[in-house]
Design a protein around this nucleic acid. Structure first.
Lengths: 166, 166
DNA sequence: TATTGTTATACTCTATAACTATA
DNA sequence: TATAGTTATAGAGTATAACAATA
């Protein structure tokens, strides 16, 4: 039998990703961000609504009335994508569209009472996801993490500025 | 003229996402994680390789020789997905597949010298992305962020345990 | 001609299922 | 029968382009 083992035993002791990735902040962010996204998706499953719906309802709740273009810009998504999502919200009676009389090209989108109610439910779910996901961190650590993330978001995306600290 | 303005002026002062999302840790994570992902993708553009390729090469560099199933498990991706990615790496001569003589169902995957070389280049790129992305944070803050992220990753994904704090 | 919303298309990712060859 | 790898397929997600109505 030769020294250079002709039948390598295949050590089964490598459950995780390579160190090169574990020590990369970008990779960790990508990974943990993806986990958070999946948590949210599975938590919203069954409501018939997605995180897009939640974002739109939240925005309308804070701003009362927006055109579709403004919604798309605020949320950083494509106008053509928004159409279908708003269709779904309108079908469920959660938002209402009406033409802007000043500029008949525009649609003004408004939250309905049912939409406000649905938003409450979504907020509860989102809150629960947050609590569960950050469970291993104490309150101070959560704040630190959020602050650092907010700083990065603001640095790389103009939309994440303006609303200063908390 | 009525009090309830029949022609709302549409205030154009809302460039960003709703506060409800800005204050959600999960949403921030999702968002910033996505930004990091896109940075990495665009940085790798032109190399002909993706972050999957990078992860595989990194793993093989640390573990020398693995079966496809072990690679898939370690990286948390699907075995069927892995096949095509390995095909690409093999076409470029960066890895080499050979049958395991103990169990001829298995393919043993090995890094070639060219693969080791390519890995160096990818590491340089990944390092640059990290530096650029975390530019707004000082060294201590970066460490804090990474530590918190690693804790979350470990809590939600078994693969991210074992390798204790750097 | 430019802009708003809409529709249609295509392309990437990812997940699933079926197939083969070995065990 | 079960497992490793492979192939094929379908679905979600996203990006792009063309279009109609209005400005």
């Amino acid at each position: 039998m030769s020294v250079q083992s002709s039948q390598p035993p295949i050590k089964p002791r490598r459950p995780g990703p390579p160190k090169a990735l574990l020590t990369s902040g970008s990779h960790l962010l990508k990974k943990v961000g993806h986990m958070a996204k999946e948590r949210l998706i599975s938590a919203l499953e069954g409501t018939g609504l997605s995180s897009y719906h939640y974002a739109i309802l939240s925005l309308l709740n804070e701003e009362s009335c927006e055109t579709q273009g403004m919604i798309a810009d605020a949320l950083g998504l494509d106008r053509s994508h928004l159409v279908g999502v708003l269709d779904e919200l309108e079908e469920q009676g959660l938002v209402q569209r009406r033409r802007d009389q000043n500029d008949r090209r525009r649609q003004l989108v408004r939250l309905t009472p049912a939409g406000k109610e649905a938003l409450k439910g979504l907020r509860t779910i989102a809150k629960r996801v947050d609590d569960e996901f950050f469970e291993p961190l104490d309150a101070a650590e959560r704040e630190t993490l959020k602050e650092l993330l907010a700083r990065l978001a603001a640095h790389h995306d103009a939309g994440y500025r303006s609303t200063s600290g908390s």
